[in-house]
Computed example of a mutant assay.
Amino acid sequence: MIPAGVAGWPIAHSLSPLIHSTWIEGAGLEASYEAFGPEDEAAFRSLVVQGRDGRLAGLNVTAPYKALALSLADEATPTAKACGSANLLVFREGRAFADSTDGLGFMQALAEQAPDLDVAGRPVVILGAGGATRAAAVALKSAEAEVGLLNRTRARAEALADELGVSVVEPEALENAVLIVNALSVQPDLDVARFADDAVLMDMTYRPLTTPFLAAGRARSLRKVDGLAMLIGQARPSFEAIFGVPVPPVDIRRVVLDALGETA
């Protein structure tokens, strides 16, 4: 079977090869999935050429190439277009098809770890205005949440909010939010004592699994959603799109936790 993989830079930290290789084995496929480390856009474009030439079945795409992946695709789903980026390229008959499964992974993580959370018509705050914010904002907007972006550089938040059709909020909005999502590459310095008692905290980071942001929420008995749940959630539809078979019944979270040296 034609190989597949994940493309980004840096790439050594990626858990995607572990996840997909475990599923490949569980499904009994004669396939491979590897980490590609294109260090620049030219090298990434070369991978896409390989896909169109029939030498790659598909690519998961991570930073910093998600926007480029969308621009290189022959076709893209409405979700990818709304996000302005793609984390998945599937190659068929010389063409590249783009999708964004990050939003699916985001909502799946919420459903698994905060199943009673209903965001429809309720305020949600996303911390950050970078690439990680896009898919979350689009998914939450589709779920009819009142999405607000909070970022240190307000102009950047305003530009993204205008593009996505959401709002920019001030720190006071955290007090009434039913969901607060950390989409920053660094840990936020926030007073969790000001959050509502029923607030859910989510962190897109999964190293460590319980980040300082989530640990502070847990100390207040707030519900938390970790980044690993989102990572696995976005990987499922990617696997099925690339390999054309359902994800096998493997406890993939346990596999990944063991690899990370985490207990829960």
Rank of each mutant, 00 (worst) to 15 (best):
P188L: 14
R95M: 12
E240R: 09
R254V: 00
S238K: 02
A132F: 12
P123Y: 14
L214E: 01
V178M: 01
L68N: 00
L231H: 04
L174P: 09
M1D: 15
D197G: 13
F239N: 06
L15A: 04
G8Q: 14
R92W: 05
S238E: 05
F44G: 05
P188M: 11
D203Q: 03
D40C: 04
D191N: 10
A69F: 11
L127G: 05
A109C: 03
L228D: 03
A159C: 00
H20R: 08
A86H: 09
G37S: 15
R154Y: 11
A173N: 04
L190N: 04
A120S: 11
R122Q: 15
E75K: 11
E39H: 14
S85L: 15
A7H: 07
R218C: 00
A215K: 03
L201N: 11
A42K: 12
A173E: 05
E163D: 13
L68E: 10
S16I: 02
A111V: 03
M202A: 11
T211C: 06
A132W: 15
S142R: 15
V147Y: 13
D189C: 02
A159W: 02
A82F: 08
T101A: 15
P208Y: 04
D226H: 05
L174F: 08
L88A: 13
W23Y: 06
T101S: 15
A96Y: 08
A157R: 07
A159M: 02
S14I: 08
G165H: 12
L88F: 09
T77S: 15
A159R: 11
V178I: 12
L149R: 06
L260D: 00
T77A: 13
R55A: 12
G121P: 10
A173L: 04
L104W: 14
T22R: 03
E112P: 00
R52T: 07
K81E: 13
Q108M: 07
Q50W: 05
R254E: 02
L160S: 07
V169E: 06
L89I: 10
A219R: 10
E75S: 13
G28P: 07
S221I: 00
E158F: 02
A137S: 12
P17A: 06
S16R: 09
L228G: 04
G5E: 06
A111L: 05
L59I: 04
R55I: 00
D191Y: 01
V147F: 11
A196V: 03
T62I: 05
A241N: 12
R134S: 12
T62F: 04
A219N: 08
P248C: 10
A215C: 00
